[in-house]
Design a binder for these strands. Structure first.
Lengths: 342, 342
DNA sequence: ATCACCGGGACAAAAAAAGTCCAGCGCCAT
DNA sequence: ATGGCGCTGGACTTTTTTTGTCCCGGTGAT
């Protein structure tokens, strides 16, 4: 059943939305007893005309009865609701999570895929698929798309495919840094995405762990400065989100800083910035590329991460307020809702 | 799962159709390997533009990859088909049955509800719901709708509800005859339908088992002749279908005729006519009302019956060739397909 | 080199959905 | 009894989406 819903969503993505709408209307009519079109439209805050179309449909299906005094649910409608009730959670659970998270953090879009990336690698693949779909949708024409590294981003790359919309754009790494295994570096992922989609790419080869001095020197260097400039044209960034302490360890951050982060309550990490639970920035890694102000100015900041263990980290990053789209999985979404008391 | 599909069909009736269409396209692409838009459109006999919209959708979903040399299935698409395969039967089994029966008997529409009316009274209710929905759809304006008796027709009546389209029409019994229990008589059902929908009705009170002489006398009688004339204006008839021998027994047909019917291989019965497996008429009950030629001339002859035991009876009636719409259940549909070797 | 077939851009025509307004009806409180 | 209110459903316009149609430039087999 669950699996069927998944498949159906791929073949008819807005079926859930429509079912939810009709279910909501029907349910409202049930609890209202007898209710008028305008009243109902106001309650569901939709327009009268749209509701009218729905009502006509429901009447056609014999699920409601409509008299001159208003409309009420029919016996068939009541039975349908009763039979649907146990499935509602499966059906709308995720939509519901999506909507709550979207509202709370004022995002443009939230996608929640079912499952827990921590428990099964299949779910991470599903995250990748969802990420690729979102990317396909938001990229309009020749734009610059900045990406970060990480295993989830690698999955996104894997699920991209040739597409005319994406063909004209550029993939670039959001920030320098070669710390991770080469498959998961931002550079690798940007180039993979470009190869998959037939787009172009530019890379930024800058080592991690630069001292301040070396950093300045590097930025003076023409070719680096030029590409950093190019990267800052990006209007779309799609990035992973990590757990602060896990990332610190993986990046071999020194003992002192690690302790400081821990004490300050660092939870989330994204493109080299560390956030506490309120979204405050605790530390930024010295890396060239996009700065937070560049990111804040963008139209499409897409965060993607899943797994129950990452829930709080994601919430921390979201609380900073620069994100526009979140793609996550059910377990992480539940954790976000729980930890923020949404 | 099965139940969910049922409910979903009520809330989004054309979801199955769309899924089927997309599944078919995807499947065709899979087996074709690399195929062009126009070729594919021809294979699926749809227009190029429509296929194009679908292809664009599938591309958007990342289920196919499209290059300038044609389109092929993507990895995600292949996986989707693989996961969908075991559900296809559930999903399309009924649609498939509907389509096969519709073609074989050249009907306008076939509706198959899942289950077997013989085994559960719920299925008969479902048949009633489907019948009511069909009726709502085909009745346009002030028309005369002729109905017959029977428990299934009673269910149809039960599922009708007030509706502006139906309000202007008349319900009449298709033929006279009071043989059955009063709840299941055509007269009762016509009046119930009228009450449910806010329509008007006229009844025909004529006893069964009329001798030829009495029959002629009755027809001379002004009021009867007038109403029979009225009934013959009907352009829509919705009727049950019975098993010949069961009906003969219920109607207390005399021993001689019963034997004759049995020997001639009577299988189906509808509005007082008995049919053998080829659709030939073996006998007609002497009843006033619609004649077969009236029925043949109508635009909408809707037969409704379910239960595995009725399969052959339904096939017999369909073979006569006067039907336009069939509403049945899964078990009967399977039986029809089996017995006619469709 | 040729040719048949490919995707996709462009645009008009047609159809569907949505916005808007209001007539007519029944109910309810006065 | 009656006036006001909220109801549905019809009518019409505007907007959006879908569909039909044509064609261009590219690709790959021959």
């Amino acid at each position: 059943m669950r699996e069927f819903l998944e498949i159906q969503k791929q073949l008819l993505p807005d079926v859930t939305e429509t079912m939810r709408k009709r279910y909501t209307i029907l349910h409202h009519i049930l609890v209202s007893g007898l209710v008028g079109r305008r009243t109902l439209a106001a309650e569901l805050n939709t327009t009268e005309r749209i509701l009218r179309a729905e009502v006509e449909f429901l009447k056609q299906q014999g699920l409601i009865e409509v008299e001159s005094s208003g409309m009420r649910i029919s016996e068939a409608g009541r039975q349908l609701l009763e039979r649907l009730e146990p499935m509602v959670k499966d059906l709308f659970g995720l939509t519901d999570l999506e909507e709550r998270i979207r509202r709370h953090f004022r995002l443009k879009q939230v996608v929640v895929v079912p499952g827990d990336s921590d428990s099964s690698p299949l779910i991470k693949k599903e995250l990748g698929r969802a990420g690729a779909a979102v990317l396909r949708k938001i990229v309009t024409s020749d734009e610059v798309v900045a990406v970060t590294g990480g295993s989830t981003m690698a999955e996104v790359a894997h699920h991209l495919s040739a597409s005319s919309a994406l063909k004209g754009c550029w993939f670039v790494p959001a920030r320098g840094g070669l710390g991770e295994s080469v498959d998961l570096q931002a550079n690798t992922i940007a180039s993979n995405m470009a190869k998959k989609t037939g787009a172009r790419y530019r890379l930024l080869h800058v080592p991690d762990h630069l001292g301040e001095e070396a950093y300045q020197t590097l930025m003076q260097e023409g070719s680096i400065a030029e590409i950093v400039q190019f990267i800052r044209q990006a209007n779309i960034v799609i990035h992973g989100i990590g757990e602060a302490m896990v990332m610190a360890r993986r990046r071999k951050v020194d003992q002192e800083l690690t302790s400081a982060l821990r004490e300050d309550g660092a939870l989330g990490e994204a493109f080299g910035y560390y956030f506490d639970r309120t979204g405050r920035i605790l530390h930024k890694m010295p890396m060239v590329g996009l700065r937070l102000e560049d990111i804040q100015a963008m139209d499409w900041v897409v965060g993607i991460a899943g797994g129950r263990s990452k829930g709080e980290a994601i919430a921390a990053v979201l609380n900073n307020g620069h994100e526009d789209v979140l793609i996550t999985d059910e377990a992480a979404a539940e954790e976000i809702v729980r930890s923020c008391g949404i």
